[in-house]
Structure formats: structure tokens, C-alpha cells
Design a protein around this nucleic acid. Structure first.
Lengths: 116, 116
DNA sequence: ATACCATTACAAATATTTTTAAAACGAATT
DNA sequence: AATTCGTTTTAAAAATATTTGTAATGGTAT
């Protein structure tokens, strides 16, 4: 392979292609990582996560706040739940959603790091 | 609105719906946040970011490592660049990609926090 | 000119999101 | 114990968006 000297140089210093290869996680781990980011890749779902960072909520409240149809909200809640960012328990007629430890970690991190 | 006592109670304690509303970032900020996560939502792009965390690289190296066609790689590089996670400069015949501060922050964070 | 490295264009293939309608389910009412 | 009401989920098709593959294009060095 043919590549610029600068790259060749620093690549060698850090252990070559093998070093790069071993810095890349396993396929399965990459997919798990991607799934979490995918869940956070929609403004609507970020709204939900931010809202839940204040207080556990039932869909009816989120619906009001985010101005969504029931089924649309439910669809997005489901995606967040499958990704392990939120959890829920039934409570009488309602269902109460809350952040998981993972979900909370995300909110904290981006609040403190201000990624952007 | 009608909601379970528990939620009503803790919601009131934290400042009610208004507190929730003000915890949700502006539309524009949500979109920017979402764009970053969206960029990280594909295993291929995570591979690229991980690779670049070792060393600045030209597409020809990444292509080799990730086993991608030129155009496919280019497509994904472009998405990462637009999201502000990577940057690039032309170098002779090549182009050299590197992580931005934002990109680096992500790699660091998930290496140390081990989100999953 | 030609070869090399990479990007762009555009249509096809996939995947995600939205909408609409129907169903599930617990609680209250008859 | 059936019916109805309120809350949420599910199903399925339609609308959108993303990703891929193929071919064409753009620069730069030889």
C-alpha cells in the first residue's frame, strides 16, 4: 500500500495497522454501541430523555409536553427502552417511564461536557 | 390532565411541567445533538472513529482496515465530517482525516465509561 | 497524457418514521 | 360480570430517510 509519509511515520510509531485493528472493538460491541447512539439520534427521543431526567413520567405527560400522537410517542419510547436507555413499570391505568443508569449517564455526560 | 399520584407528586416537587419543559433544550440544539448521535449510529462509522483515535489516516488505510469500497467509505467519512466528529486536510495526492476535539471527547468518554 | 487517490451523482435497495385504525388492559360504572 | 372509559400499545401500510452499488468526475503527481 501507498500512503503519505506523515501517515506512514505516525502509523509505524503507534504500532502500525495492527495497532489500529486492535483499537477497533469487536463487531458485536460495535453494534451494541451503534444501537445506543441510534436510539439517541432523533430530536423527539432526546426530548423524552431530557424530560425524564427531571422526573419519572407517564406517556400522557410526555405527550402533552412534546405534542405527539399516542402511537408516535409509544413508538419512540419503545426504541429507547429496547436500547436500554429507559425502563417502565405499569402503575394502575398508567405506565411510568424512567431513565436507566445508562440513560442517566448519557444525560449527565452531555450536560457536563456540552458536546457540540 | 389526569395522572398517577406518584407522578403528580414528584412532578410538583420538581417544579411541574414547566420545570420539565425548561429541561428540554431548544429545537436547534436538540437537532445538533441528534446529528452527532446519528453520525455515531452505524458500526462502520464507529470503526472509523475508533481507528482515527489511534492515528490520523488517509482513506486508503481505512479502506484496507474496514474492507469498504471507496465510495462507501467516502460517504461515511462525509457524514462524520458534517457532524463535526472528524476533519480532513488534503496532503499531496491524499487526504488525511483526523478526529476533532468533539470526536476525541466521544472516544474518551465511552472508553472510560464503558457505556453498554 | 496517464495513473493514482478520492469524491460525487444518481438510481436501487434498505431501514426508519409517521399515520391511521384497531386492540389490549386495568379501573370505574351499570 | 358485562360495559364503558381512559391510557397505552400494536399492526400494517404509506411516507421519508438512509445506505449501497455503479459509473462518472476532480485533482495531483509522475
Amino acid at each position: 500500500m501507498n500512503l503519505p509519509e506523515e501517515v506512514e511515520e505516525s502509523l509505524r510509531q503507534r504500532g502500525g495497522m495492527d495497532a489500529v485493528r486492535s483499537a477497533i472493538p469487536e463487531r458485536q460491541d460495535l453494534e451494541a454501541e451503534a444501537r445506543v447512539f441510534q436510539a439517541l439520534s432523533e430530536p423527539i427521543r432526546l426530548q423524552i430523555v431530557h424530560a425524564l431526567s427531571v422526573c419519572d413520567l407517564c406517556p400522557c405527560v410526555m405527550k402533552e409536553i412534546a405534542d405527539l400522537s399516542d402511537s408516535r410517542l409509544s413508538y419512540h419510547l419503545n426504541i429507547l427502552e429496547k436500547a436500554g436507555l429507559i425502563g417502565s413499570i405499569p402503575q394502575k391505568r398508567w405506565r411510568i417511564y424512567s431513565l436507566t443508569a445508562l440513560g442517566r449517564a448519557f444525560v449527565e455526560t452531555w450536560k457536563t461536557e456540552g458536546w457540540r
